[in-house]
């Protein structure tokens, strides 16, 4: 957390942002004392580009968004679901208004529908060993084109650098200003910086509130075996 706070301070200083921003944990930043949910996942570059594809009509006539995320055993699948609900809404620029879910312990499958009728399929599982990084895939299928964060005809993402020395290593570096941080840590710092710069914490608080309602709707749907309309 210290390294991320240092990088955040560097950005605030470099871009002359006067607000005081303190990372309280990986999910919350205090901007001038006001605690705000970071929703940092949205600022991963892959998601920014997927959103741009929808926004600028590169993917025209979106029909379906398919999401799969596998996290480590013991992790909270509802936290993962919150994240993926947020990504679907943020990338598509639409609110989800219907949720149907089936859960079997640490695995969860959801179909959610946005206001315009785009269908989102979300598959979550907490089945990976502790030392493994999360595996995920986000795919948008449209009348004109498919956008995805995994290359065609592959099951897993590529990394930028592979080292085959005495030990195998791999690196994925995506931000020169924040060089050395992981993709997730970069997104946290960028999100905190953005909130300090734009002072749009109210939007995040509103989004967080609705996301919690969506997660609760999924829990209710899984429990009662029915579609829940918000």
């Amino acid at each position: 957390m210290n390294v991320m706070q240092e990088k955040l301070a560097f950005l605030l200083d470099k871009y002359s942002v006067e607000a005081k921003a303190t990372l309280l944990n990986r999910d919350v930043v205090a901007v001038d004392g006001a605690e705000t949910p970071l929703l940092s996942h949205c600022l991963e570059r892959r998601f920014i580009e997927l959103k741009n594809m929808v926004l600028n009509n590169t993917l025209s006539g979106v029909s379906v968004m398919r999401v799969a995320r596998i996290i480590h055993k013991g992790a909270d699948i509802n936290v993962a679901l919150y994240r993926e609900f947020d990504l679907c809404q943020w990338i598509l620029g639409e609110i989800i208004c219907q949720v149907t879910a089936f859960q079997n312990g640490n695995v969860l499958n959801v179909i959610a529908t946005t206001k315009s009728g785009i269908v989102c399929t979300i598959e979550i599982s907490a089945t990976l060993a502790d030392d493994m990084e999360p595996i995920d895939k986000h795919e948008i299928i449209a009348e004109h084109g498919i956008g995805c964060d995994v290359v065609v005809d592959a099951q897993l993402k590529q990394d930028s650098v592979y080292v085959f020395g005495d030990t195998k290593q791999k690196f994925t570096d995506v931000d020169f200003e924040l060089y050395g941080l992981s993709i997730e840590d970069i997104a946290i710092v960028r999100s905190a910086f953005s909130l300090a710069q734009k002072k749009n914490g109210a939007e995040h608080i509103e989004a967080d509130c609705y996301l919690n309602k969506l997660v609760a709707a999924a829990e209710k749907s899984a429990e009662r075996c029915e579609r829940v309309v918000l």
């Binding site: 398919r66 089936f102 859960q103 079997n104 695995v107 499958n109 399929t121 299928i141």
Partner: peptide, 16 residues
Amino acid sequence: DMLSVIGRMKDGTIFS
């Protein structure tokens, strides 16, 4: 041409 299916088997296995 586009549809999604989820559900549960009798043994509890869920599917998508």
